[in-house]
Design a protein around this nucleic acid. Structure first.
Lengths: 345, 345
DNA sequence: TGCTTTTACTAAACCGTTTTAGTAAAAGCA
DNA sequence: TGCTTTTACTAAAACGGTTTAGTAAAAGCA
C-alpha cells in the first residue's frame, strides 16, 4: 500500500469557505465570546467540512512554548529502554508531568551527537542525565538559554539532583571487608569513549571511590582487586561472570556498579550450578524493582530513583514558571545497603 | 534560588550586529558556500557574542516537520513507565528511531483526554497503542491528516500491528484443560471506563475469547470460572491473590492476562508459604524480560513485543516518507506458550 | 432624535525563520 | 575594451497562526 496525505488546510481556507476573516476564525477557537452565534456555527461547519486542524508549529512559534520537557540521555533509545534504571527515573519525571499536564520527550543522541539532538528538541526545558555540565556536547544547552537541571553528573554551576553514590558504594564494600573477604571482583561501568573524561567518570567514578575508601580503611590493596568493565545490561553481566567461571576464578564476593549486571551474574551462576550466597555473594546498585523478584533476591545499594526523577522535574517546572525553587541548588539523596538473598548476613 | 532567562536573541539581532542582512545570516548556517569567508567569520562571531541559537519552532513551521514520532498511550506516564510491556514496546520503536535519527515522544492523556494530548503533540506521525480506531478520542488524529498506525486495538480502516492474542490465550487455557483442571481463575484487565466500549475490550477481549474457546472445547462452563478484574501491575496481582488466600479459595490454576499480574501472584504466594507449581499453577501473558528471572520462573504466553514496536515504527516511517510500505495493512504476529517454572509439565 | 455604548467583525502587524528572485560589483575572457 | 559570467549579498515573500487597534452597525438611553 501507499500512503498519501492530502495537502494541509489552513485557517485562511476556512475563512474563505465561511466567508469571514481569518481573525474571526481564530476567535471562534480562542475567544468565542467575541463572535456571533450563527458565525461560530458557520465557521465550525466550514472547518469540519474541510477537515481543518490548526498548525501546531505556528502556535508554538507565537507562544514560544511546546508544553513539553525533555530528558537528555547519553545513549540510544534502544539501550535506554532496556535499562530499568531509566524506566524508573522516567516514572518519577512522568508522574510530575502528568500532574502538570506537560509532555515528556526522551532525547537521545542524533547520529551519535547529543549536540545535534539538543539542537532539534522542541522542548521547554531539559533534565540532563549522566553527563557532566562541562562536557562540550551540552554546551548548546546553555546557549539556548533554556532551563536545565542535571542528574548524576559532575555539576558546579547548575541545578543538580543526585544520590550519595560514594556512601552507598562504601557501605557495600565495607560489608564484605568486615566479613574479612579479600577475594573481591568489581563490575564497573564501561564508559563510552565519547563521554569519558579522565579516570572514573560520573556516578561510576563516585561508586568506585566509595568502594576504594572501604578497602583502604581495611588495609586492602585497591590495585589487587579485579575490575571488570561491563556494559549496564543483564546480558553483559552474564557474559562477564561466565568468563570468570570458565577461567576458574569466581571470586568470593562481587560488587556491581549496577543491578542489571548483578542480575546477569545470578543468572549465569544458576546456569553453571553455582548459587549465591553460598558459592559467592553479590551486591548490586540501584535497587531497581526487579531486584526484589529475582532468585535469589538481590542485595543491593538502594537509591531513590523515582524520587530523583520527581524532584528534578519539580525543580525544572519551577524554573519554567519563574517561581521560587523549593529545593537547594544541589540535592543529594541518601543511599542505603539492602540485604536480601544474594548475601549471607 | 530564582531562575530568570534573558530575552531571546533572534537572527535579526545577529544581522544587525554583523552589519549584514538576515538572509546572509541564514545562509551562513544553511548554505555557507554562498557567503564570503570574512563575512562568515563576522557573522559567527556576532552570533557567538550574542549567544544566538535559531528558533526551532520557526524552523518547524517552515519545514512542517519535527523529526519526531509519537506513541499514543491510554494512561498517564507514571502508569506507562511502571509497565514493562510498554517499556519493551518502546525499545522496539526506539531502535528504529535510533536508526532513522528520529525522536520519540510518548504521548499520554492531558487532563484525562487523549484528544487534548493529540492536539498538542509536535510529532510527524503516531503509533496508537491499545485504543480502537473507532474511539472518539482518536478522531482528531484522522482530522490532523497525519500518518497513524495502530497497535493492539480493534482496527479496520488503518494500518495495524498486533499479536495473535486469541490463539495465545487459547493455548494457555487448553494446557490446563488438558490436564483436567477445572478449578481455574482468570485475572482480567480492569478496563478504565473511558476506554471501555462494551463487553471485553481490545487485547483483553481477544485473550478472554481465547480462554473461552479452550474451555468450551473441553465442555467447561465459562460462567463458572472466576474472573477477577485486576490492574496491570505487580501490586494489583499481589493484592488479588492475597484476597484469594484470605478467602481460602486459591484455585488450582490461574490464567493472567498480563505477566505483571502473574508476578504479583508469585510474590504473594511466596509470602503466604505457597509455591507454584506445587500448590497451584500460573500462566502469564506477554513474556516480558523479567518473566525469566523471577522465582519460580514464569510460564507465559510469549508475544514478540519488541518486534511489534519495530514493525509499527517501520511502517510509520514508510508512510512519513511516502514510500511503499513493506508490510500488509494488518500484521498479526504469532504467540506461543512458554513453559517455565510456574507450571508443571 | 441624537448621543453613547456595545456587539461583531476585520486589516494589518507580528512571531523568527527559509527561500526565491534579483542586483551590483568583481572576475573572466576575447 | 566591452561583454558575459560569477560572486556576494539582499529585499521581500512566504510559513500559519494570534493579537492589537480599529470600524461600522446595532442597541441602549435620555
Amino acid at each position: 500500500m501507499n500512503y498519501r496525505s492530502k495537502k494541509k488546510v489552513t485557517i485562511s481556507d476556512v475563512a474563505k469557505k465561511a466567508g469571514v476573516s481569518i481573525t474571526t476564525v481564530s476567535f471562534v477557537y480562542n475567544r468565542p465570546e467575541q463572535v456571533g452565534n450563527k458565525t461560530i456555527e458557520r465557521v465550525k461547519e466550514a472547518a469540519e467540512e474541510l477537515g481543518y486542524s490548526p498548525n501546531l508549529y505556528a502556535k508554538a512559534l507565537l507562544s514560544g512554548r511546546s508544553n513539553t520537557i525533555g530528558v537528555l540521555v547519553p545513549q540510544g533509545l534502544y539501550s535506554i529502554y532496556s535499562n530499568p534504571f531509566y524506566t524508573e527515573l522516567f516514572r518519577g519525571v512522568g508522574q510530575i508531568c502528568d500532574e502538570r499536564n506537560y509532555g515528556l520527550n526522551i532525547i537521545s543522541p542524533v547520529e551519535g551527537s547529543l549536540e545535534n539532538a539538543i539542537n532539534r528538541a522542541l522542548v521547554d526545558g531539559f533534565i540532563v542525565v549522566g553527563i557532566n555540565e562541562s562536557h562540550k556536547e551540552v554546551a548548546p544547552l546553555i546557549k539556548r538559554d533554556i532551563p536545565v537541571i542535571f542528574i548524576d553528573g559532575d555539576v558546579e554551576n547548575n541545578y543538580y539532583v543526585g544520590s550519595d553514590d560514594e556512601e552507598g558504594a562504601y557501605l557495600a564494600a565495607k560489608y564484605f571487608c568486615e566479613k574479612g573477604i579479600e577475594d573481591i571482583a568489581i563490575f564497573t561501568f564501561q564508559t563510552p569513549d565519547t563521554y569519558k573524561d579522565s579516570g572514573y567518570y560520573g556516578v561510576g567514578g563516585k561508586r568506585m571511590r566509595g568502594f576504594k575508601r572501604a578497602l583502604d580503611e581495611f588495609g586492602m590493596l585497591w590495585d589487587q582487586v579485579i575490575k571488570l568493565p561491563t556494559h549496564a545490561s543483564i546480558q553483559a553481566g552474564y557474559k562477564q561472570f561466565e568468563k570468570l567461571v570458565q577461567e576458574r576464578r569466581v571470586p568470593r564476593a562481587i560488587l556491581c556498579v549496577s543491578d542489571v549486571m548483578a542480575i546477569g551474574v545470578l543468572q549465569a551462576a544458576s546456569d553453571f550450578a553455582l548459587e549465591a550466597p553460598y558459592d559467592f555473594e553479590v551486591i548490586g546498585f540501584d535497587d531497581i524493582t526487579t531486584a526484589k523478584y529475582v532468585y535469589p533476591s538481590l542485595s543491593t545499594v538502594h537509591q531513590p530513583i523515582v524520587e530523583k526523577g520527581q524532584i528534578s522535574a519539580k525543580v525544572l517546572f519551577s524554573m519554567l514558571n519563574k517561581e521560587e525553587v523549593e529545593f537547594d541548588q544541589k540535592t543529594l539523596l541518601p543511599t542505603s545497603l539492602i540485604h536480601r538473598g544474594s548475601t549471607r548476613q
